[in-house]
Write a protein that binds this DNA or RNA. Sequence first.
DNA 1: ATATTGAACGATTGGTTGATTGTTCAAAGT
DNA 2: ACTTTGAACAATCAACCAATCGTTCAATAT
Lengths: 195, 195
Amino acid sequence: MTALDATREQIIAAGRERFAHYGYAKTTMAELARDCDMSPGNLYRFFAGKLEIAEEICLRASLRTADELAQILSGSERSATERLHDFLFMDLRATFHALEEDEKIVEMAQIVTTQRPEFHNEGLLREREVLSKILEMGVQAGEFVVADPDMTAEMIQVATMKFSYPQLFTRLSLEKLERELQGVYEIISRGIRAL
Amino acid sequence: MTALDATREQIIAAGRERFAHYGYAKTTMAELARDCDMSPGNLYRFFAGKLEIAEEICLRASLRTADELAQILSGSERSATERLHDFLFMDLRATFHALEEDEKIVEMAQIVTTQRPEFHNEGLLREREVLSKILEMGVQAGEFVVADPDMTAEMIQVATMKFSYPQLFTRLSLEKLERELQGVYEIISRGIRAL
DNA sequence: ATATTGAACGATTGGTTGATTGTTCAAAGT
DNA sequence: ACTTTGAACAATCAACCAATCGTTCAATAT
């Protein structure tokens, strides 16, 4: 079993490298197989297909950023308002830098989300759970007035949608985006603040 | 001069019909010329090209919705908060219905905005001027606390971006969209309300 | 038995050719 | 002179074919 997992890891590593370097479309299963010293057919013992390899890579990236965002919850010295600010800006910077360092990653993400629409929703849900908890913290601390934290978290995601879709902010600099996010954050922040 | 304008109107009318019916790509300049009882070459005395015809059609539609939105400003019995609500929902319904009744219109709009990116920005600017005035009304009436209405209007447009790009809400029903917009509106509304 | 291969198959892509279309402009019409 | 035309030109599109690629599976190796 653990040997099987190790091979999966090897395939994922090869996929990450090639997808990032040459793009999803340009890398062939034969190349991935050669990287792993096996035949193309054998890859299918470890993954259902090419898309599933990309999906696994994207899933791990999504889990990693969700983990990073979840760290915002730890500690007790910072206010929920600060945490909300951190959450929104960390999210923007994460997607922006992913876009900047490897444009090929965006291609892969785009293919996965078009072929498996539920994938992106699951990622949003993972982030929303953190956001919900931030809101709940704020309610408990008397900072926020939010009747339904889960729903409000969803609304905040809708309102900050521009900063989550790389397709929407190509051409815009990080500075401009951060200025816009700051403006939106201030409205949201006041909008849920306890009086 | 007025004869020239009349011919322009005729071409625009023909363009509207064909673009809506068969789509921008599928209608040829030769067809538009035939509709107007002239030769293809003669169209170029009235418009610089095919794209400019579509641009003029889109511009007029944009001006019309801006006018409709501007009507929200008239009268004096309604609060600025209500006007803001109307503004956001009128905008959503306008774009949603345009999408629903003629999917070909979206194709045309998409081509115009990709070929002339500044076009869409100008449309946003026109709407933002109305939004700014609503905010100013609210400030004067003591309903809103907004330091820079123009900037806040821009931020509100960013926060409600999801409801302006048809590409983003295909698959979503008007009911679902209105529920989301209501949630975002409530946050924004509280976010700019005077205490 | 289980793991792996690599040839075979259908789907997709890349590239090329011919036709169509947007645009121009010299000639004809008014 | 000012309009209008329609043939000519270049750019784009559609249809086709060959090649490539993702995937499967009977055969082979371990």
